[in-house]
């Protein structure tokens, strides 16, 4: 089985972002960047399949600027075999990303494509579902477990609003990861060194024949309304009194 994993370089989840004073966007200059946490989970899953003998090869794909190479190298250090960078200088929307991954998938012919359920910068939660549509493949989104079987199908457990759902998917298929699928490993120093020598191909949207022109115009970015910190109460009795008589919510 061959697995293709999408990894996005995003502002680290621990960093609080700044909005540009003119409201034209989010200032990401000089911020710590990391692999999107859901994509770390996707890479970890693919590498575990490789270690268990389910997967023969794990290929990473990233769409972004030159610096996205670093994120791909992190994935290679976690145990992926090789990587493809689709170099773009502008932000790509989920539909364009899905088209680029679809184009690469047509030559790579993976059995499973793993993505994160959501990029923590744009919070779109779209790309995997779009990719599945473009390729006409079944989708297993928000998965917390996945088990490939001998018959070439994959059983997945999905996190849904009311609980959990189990599906059996034909391969090839597209899967998106939720938080509880696994706990990603840290790459060891020797593996980080080894990753530097693993193959990393660079291509472009033009090479792949994909139009990545944005469909959404960003008109404005604003601060959300902030809450005022309230009061610290001295006791449970005071809390109940305030909730009853001041906030009137009890």
């Amino acid at each position: 089985m061959k697995v293709l994993v999408a990894v996005k370089r995003v502002v680290d989840y621990n960093v609080k972002i700044r909005i540009k004073p003119d409201g034209s966007g989010v200032d990401t200059a000089n911020l710590k960047m990391s692999m999107n946490p859901f994509d770390e989970i996707a890479v970890e899953e693919a590498v575990r399949w490789k270690e268990k003998g389910h997967a023969a090869e794990v290929v990473l794909i990233g769409i972004g600027p030159q610096a996205a190479q670093d994120t791909l190298r992190t994935g290679l250090a976690m145990g992926a075999d090789r990587a493809v960078l689709v170099k773009t200088e502008t932000e790509t929307e989920p539909l364009a990303v899905a088209k680029l991954i679809a184009a690469v998938a047509k030559t790579e012919k993976p059995d499973v494509i793993l993505l994160g359920k959501q990029a923590i910068d744009d919070d779109s939660n779209q790309t995997g579902q779009m990719l599945a549509a473009l390729l006409g493949l079944p989708q297993g989104t928000f998965i917390s477990a996945a088990k490939p079987d001998e018959a070439g199908r994959i059983t997945v457990i999905r996190e849904i609003d009311g609980g959990l759902e189990t599906l059996s998917l034909a391969t090839p298929c597209v899967l998106t990861t939720d938080l509880r699928l696994n706990e990603p490993r840290y790459a060891s120093l020797p593996n980080i060194m080894k990753a530097k020598k693993k193959p990393l191909d660079v291509t472009t949207p033009a090479d792949l024949g994909v139009d990545v022109a944005p469909r959404l115009a960003l008109l404005k970015v604003a601060e959300p309304p902030t809450r005022k910190a309230g009061v610290i109460v001295g006791s449970v009795a005071e809390l109940v009194d305030k909730l009853k008589n001041e906030a009137k919510v009890l």
Binding site: Q126, T127, Q129, M130, Q139
Partner: peptide, 20 residues
């Protein structure tokens, strides 16, 4: 969870960039 699962698939079938 249900809306997020199906709507982007619809959007891609229609070649539309969804607004989430």
């Amino acid at each position: 969870a249900a809306g997020k699962n199906v709507m982007p698939r619809v959007a891609a079938l229609l070649d539309v960039q969804q607004v989430s």
